[in-house]
Design a protein around this nucleic acid. Structure first.
Length: 562
RNA sequence: UUGGACGUCGACAAGCGGUAAGUCACAUGGUUUUGAUCCAUGCAUUCGUAGGUUCGAAUCCUACCGUCCAAGCCA
């Protein structure tokens, strides 16, 4: 194609551009994110937030509302409201105006219901739930009218008021739209508008005992707030006809339009609020912010930044195709960010003692090290070196495979920032386990520079034993073993696919002393291992690090093949 | 046997009648004080299938196939 930057735009923005061209909505663009406060937000919600917030910010004068869709007091709670606010704010999706709540509009919903009753478009049904279900039919079988369908307006008005006043029990009656029980779209078969729930609401308390259904409330909320483009996920396509019907039969000033797009699915994890809740309640994971969870709070604790999540959301695109995004894509995005931003330090997760036999006892040298070799402005730090070091146990093999460049008897390797060293002797305990390596160093290779142009192929990190800081390191892996959790076998549940190795803890890790200055949540690169951040469980004298993402490891890949 | 949405590389995803963008993954080389990063190269003669219209089709028409959604007084 041509080299000029061809900016392609997704189908939603294409639609908005068209609406703008046609002067729809007085050229306003107003979106919203409408979470139900019944769980924590996850990366799938982040996509919806980024789409809605992003669109509002891209168009001149665009607005973005945060609205809690709290129409079902049975499931909802203020603790979720608080968690959701925190996550959205952290993501950097700043909402315009005050936070909105569907429960603020209960009075308006009620008046709208009265209006529908008065125009003969709604009626109070006294069918018990089971019978109502029966009469609804199925996608292939038309429904049958309720015997209460033809009550007079006066009767309906009176009964509805009695519903509101608590004269009926739960399930005894409902308010229904009078549309068409034989409609091909099941959602148009006299849908329920209001039901009785004698439950206190987290904001309105016991003021109401009738609560609006989603289909009735949502379009009204959008209209009340002047939302122009009401973006939702694909499964609501069948609801759009009802969304339009309700607004067509009332007279709100604004006329929002629903547009559906595909929600995000990520491989090797689940996005269902129900599963997430079960994982938390069954203590399979350690709370909503467990770093293995795809929740915003879990990802935050793991070290993901708002920028990386936003970048991911914009790069996966927007379409109407149900899709499954490869988790490797997420990992790529987060590595990309931290490769540029994160300072490098040295750490050893499984220590193996090394003694440099020709290095003077008691001597300490301080080497200057680049914080980020790819970025000069990242500055430098000082790393102490001494006669006794730890290297990682995995960097030494007594009988190495071909092309193993790391430490083995007689093979010179580079200790990053320090010296070239060669292992001469392997010390084992009574079980034959390697417990210490005796090495010699080349004083001429100071600062790990080759003194004579000779090459060393292996370069490994280390930590000076007298200076090292002990730490606990937590490695996280995929929570599930099945790539597409939407394809579980019949009769199996998510717990059948839990990855038993999703968390691996090294309690005996050592990190170079400069790590002391790092804040909780700050991401650094443990050279040759991965990106890590200090966990909030850390204290002044106990350090815990979470692995955000591992570095790519082509050596491991070669090993796997052979 | 219903209605709707959708099918472009292993995964995302452009393209909307003028002869298949890009990203991830993967592979192979090069650079390298991280087997990281970086750089280079390769990776759909073909767009679910079959017909048709056209000088020309992923794009238009027809038929078929497949996937997903819908029968909560959940959202």
């Amino acid at each position: 194609m041509d080299n000029n930057e061809v900016k392609t735009v997704d189908f939603i923005r294409t639609q908005i551009n068209e609406d703008l061209k046609n002067n729809k909505n007085d050229k306003r663009v107003h979106t919203r994110f409408p979470p139900e406060p019944n769980g924590f937000l996850h990366i799938g919600h982040a996509k919806a937030i980024c789409v809605n917030h992003g669109i509002a910010r891209e168009y001149e004068g665009g607005k973005f509302n945060l609205r809690f869709d709290d129409t079902n007091p049975v499931k909802e709670d203020t603790t979720y409201v608080e968690a959701i606010k925190k996550d959205i704010d952290w993501l950097g999706a700043h909402w315009d105006g005050d936070i909105k709540y569907a429960s603020d509009y209960y009075g308006i919903f009620y008046d709208a219901a009265i209006k529908l009753i008065k125009s003969g478009k709604a009626y109070v049904d006294s069918l018990p739930p089971e019978e109502a279900r029966e009469l609804r039919g199925s996608p292939t079988k038309p429904g049958i009218n309720s015997p209460y369908r033809d009550r007079t307006v006066e009767e309906n008005l009176e009964l509805f008021e009695q519903m509101k006043d608590g004269k009926f029990n739960e399930g005894e009656c409902t308010l229904r739209a009078k549309i068409d029980m034989t409609h091909v779209n099941v959602h148009m078969r006299d849908p329920f508008l209001y039901r009785i729930k004698k439950v206190s609401h987290h904001r309105t308390g016991d003021e109401w005992c009738i609560y609006p259904m989603y289909d009735f409330a949502h379009c009204l909320e959008d209209a009340i707030e002047g939302i122009t483009h009401s973006l939702c996920s694909l499964e609501f396509i069948n609801h759009r006809e009802l969304y339009d019907w309700i607004l067509d039969n009332l007279d709100f000033e604004y006329r929002p339009r629903q547009i559906e797009f595909a929600r995000l699915n990520l491989s090797y994890t689940v996005m269902s609020k129900r599963y997430l809740l079960e994982l938390v309640e069954s203590k399979t994971v350690n709370g909503w912010d467990d770093p293995r969870l795809p929740t915003i709070s879990g990802m935050r604790r793991r070290g993901y930044s708002p920028e990386s999540i936003r970048s991911f959301c914009s790069q996966i695109g927007l379409s109407k195709v149900n899709s499954l995004v490869d988790y490797a894509f997420l990992e790529y995005i987060v590595r990309e960010e931290f490769n540029a931003k994160a300072d490098r330090i040295m750490a050893v997760t499984q220590p193996l003692k090394v003694t440099i036999t020709n290095y003077p006892e008691g001597q300490v040298e301080e080497f200057e090290a680049d914080n980020n070799p790819n970025r000069e402005d990242a500055g430098k730090r000082v790393v102490p070196f001494s006669r006794e070091l730890y290297i990682d146990r995995t960097d030494f093999i007594e009988e190495p495979p071909k092309k193993f460049f790391r430490m083995t008897k007689g093979q010179e390797v580079r200790l990053i920032h320090a010296y070239f060293v060669t292992c001469n002797e392997v010390i084992k305990d009574e079980n034959g386990e390697v417990v210490e390596l005796l090495c010699t160093y080349d004083p001429a290779s100071r600062c790990a520079k080759s003194p004579d142009g000779r090459k060393v192929k292996g370069t490994i990190q280390w930590v000076s034993i007298p200076h090292a800081i002990k730490a606990e390191v937590r490695l996280y892996d995929k929570l599930f073993t099945l790539e597409n959790m939407g394809n579980m076998e019949e009769g199996k549940t998510y717990s059948d696919y839990l990855n038993p190795n999703s968390l691996e803890i090294f309690t005996n890790a050592y990190v170079e002393p400069s790590v002391k200055d790092r804040a909780i949540g700050e991401v650094v690169q443990f050279m040759r291992i991965g990106y890590f951040c200090k966990d909030l469980d850390s204290t002044e004298d106990s350090y815990i690090f979470n692995r955000t993402v591992a570095l790519k490891d082509s050596w491991a890949k070669i090993q796997e093949k052979s």
